[in-house]
Nucleic acid binder design. Structure first.
Lengths: 340, 340
DNA sequence: CTGAAAGCGCTAACAC
DNA sequence: GTGTTAGCGCTTTCAG
C-alpha cells in the first residue's frame, strides 16, 4: 500500500507551514491566493486526505452515530435502519452498526467499544440490557435515543405496545375466535405485547390457557418448532396473535407445511407491518407501525440532541407513535355456530 | 454531559505515570501488582475508557471496515450485510455503512470520507463508479473487496451473471414461452444480465423485441409504471425475466393490481432468491445466489487482505460463485397449442 | 497574512 | 518496574 501523505508532506511540497495548509483546507483564516494555490496543487499531487481521527481528537466530534440493533434478519430492523440512515446522512453523520444478536453481553460490549470510539451519539434499538445497567453505562455520558427500549431516562420512541396488542387480540375476539394463542416472547424485557394480549382476553372474558402461550424468543427455528407443537395439540387454537410479523411469517410457513390453511383453519394477526407483509402467500393482517418514519425520527432526534447538547437525563418519552390495524387476508370471521 | 476522563486523570488519581497506566491497560510490559491495582481502581472510579482515536492515530488501525452499498430496501443488501457483519464482528471489526442510493457522486463522496477516516478496508457492493475512477480512488491505497462490481483489479465476488441470466431465460423458453420480456436495467455498469438475456434469445431463435426490454433502474415506482405499460401492450409478453427478485416482486404486485394472474397469464422468473421469495403471493421461480455466504466470504476476505497486507492490485477475480435455478410457482409451461 | 509552538489522548522507545 | 520524552496528524493560540 502506498504511504499516505500527511499535512507535513503537503506543507513541505507547497513550501509553506503546516498551519497555512490547515488554514486553506479549513478556510479558518484568510490566506494569500499565492499560498493557497500552492497548497491546493500539493494536495492534488500528493492526493492528500486529512486524517479524520487526528481532527476528531481535537474537535471532539466524530460525526458518527452508533446504532445498537438486535439483528438484521427481521426485516423490521433494516427498514428502521433505512430511515435512520436517511435522516442522519443528510446531516453528514455516519452510522456504525452493532449487531447484538439479542445478547445483552454483546450489547454491553458494543456500547463500551462505541464509547471508546467517542461516537457522538447512540440509537439503541430493542435493548436487552437492564435499566440500571443502561443508566450506569450511558446516562449523562453520551447522547442517546432509544427505540423500543424501556429506559427510564432519555428520549424514547415507540408506540403504545400494550394497547396495540390489546387491539390485535380484540380484533381476533371480535372475529369470533375463542381459542386464541400468542407466539412471541414473554420474559425478555418489559413485555408490553404479552400484557396487551392478556388484558384483552381478560376484558372480553376469553379463556386464558397457559399452553396457548408460546414463549420462544426470536429465532426462526424455535418459532417453527414451537408452532408445530402448538398446532399439533388436539385442541388447537383457531387464532394466533404473533408478537411481530417476522414471527407471523414463520407461523404461516409452519402451518403451510403442516397442510393447515390460512385463514380457513387458522387465523393469524401480526405486528409491525413490515413491507413484505402484504405480498405474502396470504397477505397478513397486522398492526401497522410507521417503521421508516420511526427511523427518520430517531435519526433526526439524535442529531438534535447532539447538536444542541440537550440532555434528556430525566425520564422523557415521546408521545406514543400512532399505529393502526390493517385488515388483510390472514384472519377469518368464525362461523356463527362455532361462536358458542 | 460529564467530562470524560483521560489517561492523565487516571495516572493522577492512581499516583503513577501515564505510561504505567498504559502498560497495565495493554499488558505490554510487566507492572507491579501494587501499581496495577491502583490503576484498576482509578479506572473504575473514573469510569475511564481509552480513547480509540488517539490509539488509532498511533497504531494506524481503526478496526473498521466501510461497506459501500447502493440501498437497503432491496432485501438482497440487508442479507448480504448480515453475512458481512457476521464474519467481520467475529474478528473484532466494525462496519460503517454508506448508503449510495445508486448515485456515483454519493459513492465517490463516501469513499473519500472513509479514506479520510482511515478505515482499514472497504467492501464495495454494486459500484456505479467507472473503472478508471475506481482505480484512481482506491487502487493501492487501501484494502478492498468488490461484490458485484466490475473492477479490473482487486478481489471480486459474484457469480457468472451472463450464464445465470442465460439460464433463466432459457428456462422460460423451454417452458414454451415465445414472447419474453426483461425488466431491469440496461445501461448501468457492465450489464451482464442483459447480455445473458440476449444471448439466450439469440441461441434459441426467439424473437427479440425492443419494446420488451424495460430499462427502468431500481426504483419501485419506475418498475411499476414501466411494467404497467408493458402489460398494457396489445401483444404483451407471456414471460418476464426480472433482473432481480426485488423487481420481480414489484412486477407481481403490478400484475396483481391489473388483475393478471401469475403464472396462468404471466410467468415471471427472478434473480437472487432473497429470503422472502418463497413466501410470496406466488412463490417465485428464481436464480438462487448464496447471498449470506457471499457476505461472509466478503467479510473474511477483507480481513485476510487487511491482516496479511495482501494486495490484489492486479486483476484477480474469485472463481465465480455457484448459483442455481429454483423452480417454484411463478412460471407456467405454455400449452402445446400455443407453442407455435 | 504566516510560522512556531502547544496540545488533543495515547503508545513506545529510552533512560534510570 | 517505572517515569520522562517524543511523537501519531492535526488545529489553534500566539507572536510577528
Amino acid at each position: 500500500m502506498d504511504k499516505v501523505s500527511t499535512i507535513k508532506d503537503v506543507a513541505k511540497l507547497a513550501n509553506v507551514s503546516i498551519s497555512t495548509v490547515s488554514r486553506v483546507l479549513n478556510g479558518t483564516t484568510p490566506v494569500s491566493k499565492e499560498s493557497s494555490d500552492k497548497v491546493y496543487k500539493a494536495v492534488e499531487v500528493l492526493d492528500y486526505k486529512p486524517n479524520a481521527m487526528a481532527r476528531s481528537l481535537i474537535s471532539k466530534k466524530t460525526m458518527t452515530i452508533a446504532v445498537i440493533i438486535p439483528n438484521l434478519s427481521n426485516l423490521f430492523f433494516p427498514e428502521l435502519l433505512r430511515g435512520i440512515s436517511k435522516a442522519v446522512e443528510k446531516e453528514g453523520y455516519f452510522l456504525i452498526i452493532c449487531n447484538t444478536d439479542y445478547s445483552s453481553e454483546k450489547e454491553e460490549k458494543y456500547i463500551n467499544q462505541m464509547l471508546e470510539r467517542r461516537v457522538d451519539g447512540f440509537i439503541i434499538v430493542s435493548s436487552s440490557i437492564s435499566n440500571e445497567k443502561l443508566t450506569q453505562m450511558v446516562k449523562g455520558k453520551t447522547s442517546v435515543v432509544f427505540v423500543y427500549s424501556y429506559a427510564d431516562f432519555g428520549y424514547n420512541i415507540m408506540e403504545d405496545g400494550i394497547k396495540a396488542t390489546y387491539d390485535a387480540t380484540k380484533y381476533l375476539i371480535h372475529m369470533g375466535h375463542k381459542k386464541i394463542a400468542c407466539v412471541g416472547w414473554r420474559f425478555k424485557g418489559v413485555n408490553v405485547r404479552y400484557m396487551g394480549f392478556r388484558k384483552a382476553l381478560e376484558e372480553f372474558n376469553v379463556d386464558f390457557r397457559n399452553e396457548y402461550v408460546i414463549d420462544c424468543g426470536y429465532s426462526k427455528e424455535e418459532i417453527t418448532n414451537n408452532t408445530i407443537k402448538l398446532l399439533k395439540m388436539k385442541d388447537r387454537p383457531t387464532g394466533i396473535v404473533a408478537f411481530n410479523d417476522d414471527t407471523a411469517i414463520a407461523i404461516m410457513m409452519a402451518a403451510k407445511n403442516m397442510g393447515i390453511n390460512i385463514p380457513e383453519e387458522l387465523s393469524i394477526i401480526g405486528y409491525d407491518n413490515i413491507s413484505i407483509s402484504n405480498i405474502l402467500l396470504k397477505p397478513l393482517t397486522t398492526i401497522s407501525v410507521p417503521i421508516h418514519k420511526m427511523g427518520v425520527d430517531a435519526g433526526k432526534k439524535i442529531i438534535e440532541i447532539i447538536d444542541n447538547g440537550i440532555s434528556y437525563s430525566d425520564t422523557y418519552r415521546e408521545k406514543y407513535i400512532p399505529y393502526e390495524l390493517i385488515e388483510r387476508e390472514s384472519v377469518k370471521a368464525m362461523d356463527i355456530d362455532k361462536l358458542n
